[in-house]
Design a protein around this nucleic acid. Structure first.
Lengths: 337, 337
DNA sequence: CTGTTAGCGCATTCAC
DNA sequence: GTGAATGCGCTAACAG
């Protein structure tokens, strides 16, 4: 932001007009001579004038900027969510200020502070898996900055949220495995305390219970680092000789398939695998990995739409939107043809 | 940005001090009574005061905000680049304002205007595949807003850039195929006029020429929409009965492998495939797809580092940084063991 | 229709 | 050490 930028004052001086007249001309307000307006617009165009949003923000008390915090951007789901937000933002004349928490609660809290100082009009956040403390969100509330969760949320914080149905999706996935004949299904779960993995776990448990299938605590192995230690988790769970594994995400499912095949197992005949998310890798593996396809792009779009609506209509109640996940049955779980 | 935010004036009033004293206390400037400073800091903490960056920006003429424009964020390379930028930005106290051009020159130009109005301190851009016009960039220059290209650039625009070596990487890839015994290599190329695909194509051509291998215009099929019509491109190129295909990206390589296998070809014995990028799908396909692994995260980091250096040191010359791509040889091209 | 005045939140002179 | 005055670029009353 050098001083080469043309200001409203420059235009006023060159046209021998007052700044307020120029300001009105620029904004197409009534009560202005058509001739003056034309002149102003022409000069603005010629001098390549761009309104200074910073100055406008100071007056309007709104920046038309939305903060977005995600745990990791280099992810199928979150990159699509951000893409969806970008779509809505540009449609409605908002800008996105982007931060990544790196799954770290401290970085997340710092990002929230920073964004608050930038005077964002609202915040969209998917929390890190460490995040427990509601404090940063309470501060946001007392500052009057609206925020919403998308995907990963803090259940005990009162705020609006847009999510994909996790519990029911997981339930559907496991039920599908049961219908395919699986009786001894294990679950590679995600980090404990993270809303989405907790809900997927519940879906697994309830599906098993509802179909009167036994499972032990050993059937559930938590991967704190998601796919990073999925291999060890698969090895561990194989002691139970399961005929099916429901994995908390697709990369883990892919790792499971590869490992089992290397051991000589046939997927899905000997053991069926179902993942979660709809990652591209799930379509590439042979056999293709059945999965719950999550509409990340739509989550992003709907979350920002809702936030903008709340901002512009000064809506204060909390709202919740739950999108459906689609069970995509592929080779890795198609036992019965 | 409601009016609930505490201002420096609020602090001044409650402490019966002037705003300038409070301002100085807050910024740890000298010439202030230690006792007053303590009181100010305490109250600021207690009232949850956050400095208004908007107001500061108006005075300092810098926003500490960097604009970033990418063609598509939901991409392995660009999402990692953005992640790298986020890392550097938070280290240096900058914020990122994110836009996606959707491969559309018009949206890109509009995004540039918008970001200019936000008075970003600098811009990092990877151009859309449509982009030809230098006009938006010239305007940026006359406004004194520094910008740099990363990855995809406009060669004829004078600006700094950070890229991955495309020509040499493609050359390496094709040469590797030749060393493995391929003699009739086809190339699924990217859109014409897009810097990176043009350079990969040159790498292919020169490698073929240097090894005295003939190729015809039919050996090169351009996919305007990248992977979307890769399948048709593969079918087309198969009329030449190639023993190797070098694809402009990994998804295309994966499509090629799947299609050829469905026809009964053995990869790599009958036909070798090498991709470009280092996408996760390349590791999952069987056989794994050889590829050029591009350091997207580093590109993002280095690009932002360079931009910040230019901004803070008022550096005006153009600079160019070219990172290496790593040839990762995998099953899809390992003919000789 | 147009110009003057005041002020957004803060930093930066310059007095005291 | 501290405060009053001025201004960043712009908008919003209010006069004329």
């Amino acid at each position: 932001m050098k001083n080469k930028q043309v200001t409203i004052k420059d235009l006023a001086r060159k046209l021998r007009l007052s700044v307020s007249t120029v300001s009105r001309a620029l904004r197409n307000l009534p009560d202005i001579n058509e001739d003056t307006r034309r002149k102003v617009l022409e000069l603005a165009e010629g001098l390549n004038y761009e309104p200074n949003y910073i100055a406008q923000s100071l007056i309007n008390k709104q920046t038309r900027t939305i903060g977005v915090i995600v745990p990791l951007i280099a992810t199928h789901f979150f990159s699509h969510a951000l893409s969806g937000m970008n779509e809505v933002a540009s449609q409605h004349g908002y800008h996105l200020m982007f931060c990544q928490s790196n799954e770290c609660a401290l970085q997340e809290a710092e990002a929230i502070r920073q964004l608050a100082s930038c005077r964002i009009d609202g915040l969209l956040i998917s929390v890190s898996k460490q995040t427990q403390d509601a404090e940063p969100f309470l501060k946001l509330q007392q500052k009057g900055i609206p925020f919403m969760f998308f995907d990963r949320d803090l259940p005990h914080v009162s705020a609006s949220r847009v999510k994909v149905e996790q519990y029911k999706s997981a339930f559907k996935a496991v039920e599908h495995m049961i219908q395919q004949g699986c009786r001894n299904i294990a679950h590679l779960a995600g980090p404990k305390g993270l809303s989405v993995s907790d809900e997927r776990l519940r879906g697994y448990e309830h599906a098993m219970q509802q179909h009167n299938l036994p499972y032990t605590p050993q059937h559930i192995v938590h991967c704190e680092k998601f796919q990073l230690n999925a291999l060890e988790a698969v090895k561990e769970v194989m002691h139970l000789q399961p005929d099916g594994i429901f994995t908390v995400n697709d990369p883990s499912g892919v790792i499971a398939i590869k490992y089992l095949q290397s051991l000589g197992y046939r997927v899905p005949q000997d053991i069926a695998i179902v993942g979660f998310n709809g990652d591209p890798v799930a379509e590439v593996i042979e056999p293709a990995l059945s999965t719950i396809v999550q509409p990340g792009y739509e989550v992003g779009k709907e979350a920002l739409k809702m936030l903008i609506r709340h901002i512009e209509e000064k809506f204060t109640e909390t709202e919740e939107l739950v999108l459906e996940g689609r069970l995509e049955i592929r080779g890795s779980s198609k036992i019965i043809c």
